[in-house]
Design a binder for these strands. Structure first.
Length: 477
RNA sequence: CGGGACGUGGCGCAGUCUGGUAGCGCACUCGGCUGGGGGCCGAGUGGUCGCCGGUUCAAAUCCGGCCGUCCCGACCA
């Protein structure tokens, strides 16, 4: 242990400092000159690309196509849906000059694309035969945020936004719920984040939606993170943007719409859920590098060890595993161990003179730090099953943490105590009024994260004493 | 956007109070020895001290404005 090397702050000691340090040390992102702007570095971007691919496949499998819409939105477009402008107005950035000339109408840099997309959709949709229209766009958006943190809240961020149009309210609702499920599946299967799913309370709804469905994750510090949302827009935007079509009965009617989004914020969630004192911890399905080979050589047998390491690398890569071999000659094995743990590589494979002699390799898993000696012949199979075990274990661990930190409050006093001292999700009946929701928020800083779709037990609201159904509260990011 | 702290090579900091030669550790480059949990020795590279302006013979240092970062509150994916 050498004290001169920059040590990662312990997660429990100062979670905020730990997070910022980890982002920088693992080379995930770097600060830009304008508030809230960041470069996503190659390793961070590789993670995003893997999420993108997974989600994109799921979108395609559910019938969606990708398209691209303009970055600049005329002010008049944004103003068409009253609640929508109201919601986004405080965080818009405007372009007012083009080629040295003051513009007649200022242009907003998209904070989200409903308004501009609806303008296109008005022309694209004429008949019920044009429906459903199922389009997704991968892009960047900009919101002038006051407080920013890499990934979790940045001014500019990358995301996908799906925008669909349907003939009936039932279809739109189904679509919104379907995409919530797509997100939830991605969180569980790919990211090993056991999100809760449910509806937002009216006050937490997306600006302009009639219903917002959400996926909420619980972070390592007991705070909740809204990870992805899917909105049933009803006819609000269709009316505002005058989108109509002729239905089977030859009547001109407004269609029903949805929109749904998933952003680079999730990378922040990934860090907060799985990261530990050693650094990042990536689920194998997501990890750009699933296993890294660290050769351990001594002066005399360097060539031989290198050859073996390269051979093993080739073999595993051909077996379809995402591999890396660390042939750096400057750093010691110990240095490399720490480095790859910081980066969150799920498995480390050590191969040295002793292993070559015994015809084996050493496998060390990132999630539990367990070490095992595996014969060379069976290595690809063993690595494959080990990666699957790690994937599973990470989800189990995260779920256990979530369950241990999900509590039912029987009284308002208990509610306050849990939020203050333990954090986590708190289940309590809510009478459905904004007054109690607001009061709880003011007094405890906890907000309704969602109204769960599985547990909907009736009870008495802790504040008002009126009858209500279960809501999930938490302090959120 | 309020309250507080801060901004000096890539990172962590000293120097600022009391104006006068920019310094340390790590990282980086080169050479050599090393290598199973952040190695050792030697020689080097790199900074208009966040930006703009003011005071002064002289500004990292004093004054003003702006920008950015971090923490705590109000708003948000």
């Amino acid at each position: 242990m050498v004290e001169a090397v920059e040590k990662l702050t312990k997660k429990s000691e100062d979670p905020s400092r730990w997070y910022l340090q980890l982002v920088r040390m693992a080379k995930l992102a770097d600060y830009g000159p304008v508030r809230g702007t960041f470069a996503i570095r190659p390793y961070g971007f590789a993670i995003w690309e893997r999420i993108q691919r997974d989600l994109d496949d799921r979108f395609k499998a559910t019938g969606h196509q990708n398209a691209y819409f303009p970055l600049l939105i005329p002010e008049s477009y944004l103003k068409k849906e009253a609640k929508h402008v109201e919601g986004f107005d405080p965080e818009l950035a405007w372009v007012t000059i083009g080629g040295r000339e003051e513009l007649e109408e200022r242009l907003a840099i998209r904070p989200t694309s409903e308004s501009i997309i609806c303008d296109f959709y008005r022309n694209w949709i004429q008949s019920y035969r044009d429906l459903p229209l199922l389009i997704n766009q991968w892009c960047n958006v900009l919101r002038w945020e006051k407080v920013t943190r890499p990934f979790l809240r940045t001014s500019e961020f990358l995301w996908q936004e799906g925008h669909t149009v349907h003939a009936t309210p039932e279809e739109a609702r189904e679509e919104a719920l379907r995409m919530q499920r797509v997100y939830s599946d991605c969180f569980h299967e790919m990211l090993a984040i056991p999100v809760l799913t449910g509806m937002k309370s009216p006050s937490e709804r997306f600006a302009g939606a009639i219903e917002t469905y959400t996926c909420e994750g619980l972070m390592g510090d007991g705070r909740a993170l809204q990870a992805a949302t899917s909105h049933d827009l009803g006819q609000n935007f269709a009316r505002a943007f005058d989108i109509t079509f002729l239905d089977e009965n030859q009547e001109r009617v407004h269609p029903y719409q949805t929109s749904w989004g998933f952003s680079t914020r999730t990378i922040g969630g990934l860090i907060l859920v799985h990261g530990d004192d050693r650094g990042l911890k990536l689920p194998p399905k997501l990890a750009p590098t699933q296993a890294v080979i660290v050769p351990i050589w001594r002066g005399k047998n360097k060539a031989e060890v290198r050859r073996e390491a390269e051979a093993l690398y080739a073999e595993l890569q051909i077996a379809g595993l995402r591999m890396e071999v660390d042939l750096d000659e400057e750093h010691s094995p110990g240095w490399k161990f720490n480095e790859h743990e910081l980066r969150g590589v799920p498995v480390r494979i050590e191969i040295g003179p002793k292993d070559i002699e015994k015809g084996q390799a050493v496998l060390v898993r990132r999630d539990t730090a367990e070490k095992e000696f595996v014969p060379r012949e069976g290595l690809p199979e063993r690595l494959r099953t080990l990666l699957a075990e790690i994937q599973e274990n990470m989800l189990v661990q995260a779920r256990e943490f979530r369950d241990e930190n999900t509590r039912r409050a029987e009284s308002y006093g208990e509610f306050k105590e849990i939020i203050e001292e333990k954090r986590g999700f708190v289940l309590a009946p809510w009478d459905g009024t904004e007054e109690t929701e607001q009061k709880i928020k003011e007094e405890t800083k906890a907000t309704i994260r969602l109204l769960p779709d599985d547990v909907r037990e009736e009870g008495k609201d802790l504040v008002s004493g009126k009858p209500g159904a279960t809501a999930v509260f938490a302090r959120a990011y």
